[in-house]
């Protein structure tokens, strides 16, 4: 079970709940296949650095999860087939990356706690 990080961009044309629905669809797909989702991040609507498919903004979502090696192929096929996803990138995390993301999450949690 190695650790991966998947970032994908959803077209801005969709309404709010359609976006949620696509994100849940992939989350559900992962859980069915026995992956362990460690962390989810939602950057919301962001301006793209260059237009993709004639759209200049997109809805970013980041999944950090543990999964089997061969799961990634199915996951990417799913991403490719879904036409609401305009761009995706899955990356394997080495030990430095895992440590970095853990630190980043703790940092963010502390910040949230202070704000509350």
């Amino acid at each position: 079970m190695n650790q991966y990080e998947a970032v994908f961009i959803i077209t801005p044309v969709l309404s709010e709940e359609q976006m949620k629905e696509t994100v849940n669809k992939f989350e559900q797909f992962m859980l069915d296949k026995g992956c362990e989702i460690i962390h989810q991040e939602n950057w919301g609507m962001r301006k793209l650095a260059y237009p993709i498919m004639k759209k200049s903004s997109g809805f970013y979502h980041v999944f950090e999860f543990k999964a089997e090696g061969q799961f990634i192929k199915e996951f990417e096929i799913q991403l490719k087939r879904d036409e609401r996803i305009i761009r995706f990138l899955t990356v394997a995390l080495d030990k430095h990356a895992i440590e970095y993301s853990k630190k980043r999450r703790e940092l963010k949690n502390n910040k949230n706690n202070e704000e509350k």
């Binding site: 970032v7 961009i9 650095a49 260059y50 761009r87 990138l89 990356v91």
Partner: peptide, 13 residues
């Protein structure tokens, strides 16, 4: 290069 792929950074700025 990864950042460019997910449109966080431009290819030609």
């Amino acid at each position: 290069k990864r950042a460019r792929h997910i449109a966080i950074m431009p290819y030609i700025g």
